[in-house]
Design a protein around this nucleic acid. Structure first.
Lengths: 326, 326
DNA sequence: GTGAAAGCGCTAACAG
DNA sequence: CTGTTAGCGCTTTCAC
């Protein structure tokens, strides 16, 4: 391994000069700098970030913790966050908690020494624990509201209202909502927004749930929404599962039942009929979270916290249509 | 931040004793050990892995580099590799190259100091460059054959042969193969295996390609496979795009055309008809790659290299059926 | 079984 | 502008 010392020796300057050429170039004579750079390049020298971190206290690493990497909701967020971080010269550790709060906490703690901050996506931890961890390492939360912490939210309520309006506008009067898991912040938001809007429109809304946030969840719900002409689902996977269940029962979508998903994930776009859904700005959320985290890192311990609420919107595709006359 | 020094002070022993309690417990008196552990727990001490790495040369970190995190092929692999690494007390950096070889190389180089090894999935780098990088950091390649390096391959040829057999067995005689991008190792394997097997069976096989490895690629290919009753596609996305194109043209799947994908990805399982496809053992590949990488790390510089070939198999679902009598 | 001392690769005052 | 010195948090000989 070629170190700063090798470069110093080979270019006839002191190690500190080499160090400065890389971490404070303006402090070193242009000519010396060029010389050192040349030698470094020739030797294939790369600063050791871990060693640097030891003195500076900045690792230039970020942690990104998600509940389930394989859930199609997350990859676009991970991709965007990682790319954005990279452009800012940050590497990112990605870890999957398997929905296990204990593991989640363990990960944050072991990671904390090695990163400048952690992005927590849809955390399963209690607010109290999150606050405690915040004292050890800067945290930004995505997809859940935690008082007193910097948070990036996707305003799914907005999309949910648009979804209800869309359905009501199409003449639907028997609308069901399939909710998600009990602890889900998103699910609560959707429910709230959808019921409020339905009430405003004077249309009843049947809330059915909780449901597993998977295609199985949707499939299992097919029996529970009998008699409804339109269904808003917790996510695309649930919607897709529901459609499958409906088709199995000889019902057609959108002919007999209109179905709306949430997330705008790849499987939904690929479905036939193409799924009408609420787009979640996952990529933007990932980038925004990185920006906020980096800002918090710079600001130190008691930086002011922010809540950013990103817009969502309804994408009308093929799984919804005008209600058939009763 | 609580360091080894704080623990030493608080428990009245020397730092080296504290160090030993964590990194070589058998070298310290049971009683002392317990005492130190208690104090450490009470203080919330966590060893700083980065600092440890400075002396030991082992970071306990791994790098995982993929072409595109959002491609549904990768998340299961990432999830499995990360989980497996975690169980072995390793953290993993995940990075996305956006299919850019320059970025890929840059990532490996900047990561190299911070990890004990790197997992390269479907690399776009030249063999020569990969070999050069191998000198800097242990590497394991997934999904591409690189002579002289440890490699984990998924034997798609096996699945492709089974796919051709399946189609021939169903009476198909006009079979097309949609290949992938020119540089793809997988695509070459599929083509080889499929053409060989078709020849053995005395059935002609039309090779169509290269195609973009996306649904657009499949969609665009719909016109090019006219006159064929069955198509084997480079991946599930291509298959799904093709099906969409076929349906747009008034053809039914599998009624008029049987379609087989490759990967066994979520969108394929969710499709109607459910996609007949070749399962790729991505999770197993991720775990295996981690094992091999860790072994290489232990063995040092010139460890022997291995090639592991994982089995694939055909999963028959609903997108294939008996050829209609001509 | 435990302490003392040196050092991993690098940065950060402080002189000069 | 550059060299000297000290030290980040930890491990690892080497003594005792």
């Amino acid at each position: 391994m070629v170190t700063i010392r090798d470069v110093a020796r080979a270019s006839g300057v002191h190690v500190s000069t080499v160090s400065r050429t890389f971490s404070a170039p303006h402090l070193v004579n242009e000519k010396t700098r060029q010389a050192v750079l040349a030698v470094a390049a020739q030797l294939g020298y790369r600063p050791n970030r871990a060693a640097r971190a030891l003195t500076t206290g900045r690792t230039h690493n970020l942690g990104l913790i998600v509940a389930d990497i394989a859930n199609p909701f997350f990859p676009p967020l991970i991709k965007a966050a990682q790319g954005h971080a990279r452009e800012r010269d940050y590497h990112v550790f990605v870890a999957d908690t398997d929905e296990d709060p204990v593991l989640e906490q363990e990960l944050i703690e072991t990671l904390s020494k090695q990163v400048d901050g952690v992005l927590l996506c849809s955390p399963r931890l209690s607010n109290q624990t999150i606050h405690r961890l915040r004292a050890e390492v800067p945290l930004v939360i995505v997809n859940r509201r935690v008082k007193g912490l910097t948070t990036v939210l996707m305003d799914v309520g907005q999309g949910a209202r648009a979804a209800i309006d869309h359905l009501v506008g199409l003449g639907h009067r028997r609308i069901a909502l399939l909710t998600g898991p009990p602890g889900s912040w998103t699910s609560g938001e959707i429910r709230q927004a959808a019921t409020d809007r339905a009430a405003e429109a004077g249309v009843p809304l049947t809330v059915v749930g909780p449901n597993e946030p998977t295609e199985q969840g949707g499939l299992a719900a097919a029996d529970k929404i009998a008699g409804h002409s339109a269904v808003l689902c917790y996510n695309d996977l649930v919607a897709l599962g529901l459609i499958e269940g409906l088709v199995e029962r000889g019902l057609s979508v959108p002919g007999d039942v209109s179905v709306i998903g949430i997330d705008d994930s790849l499987p939904g776009r690929l479905n036939r009929p193409k799924l009408t859904t609420i787009t979640m700005p996952t990529a933007a959320a990932g980038r925004m979270a990185v920006d906020l985290l980096l800002a918090a890192v710079g600001a130190g311990e008691h930086a002011p916290h922010t809540t950013v609420r990103l817009e969502t919107s309804l994408v009308i595709r093929e799984s919804t249509q005008r209600a058939s006359e009763p």
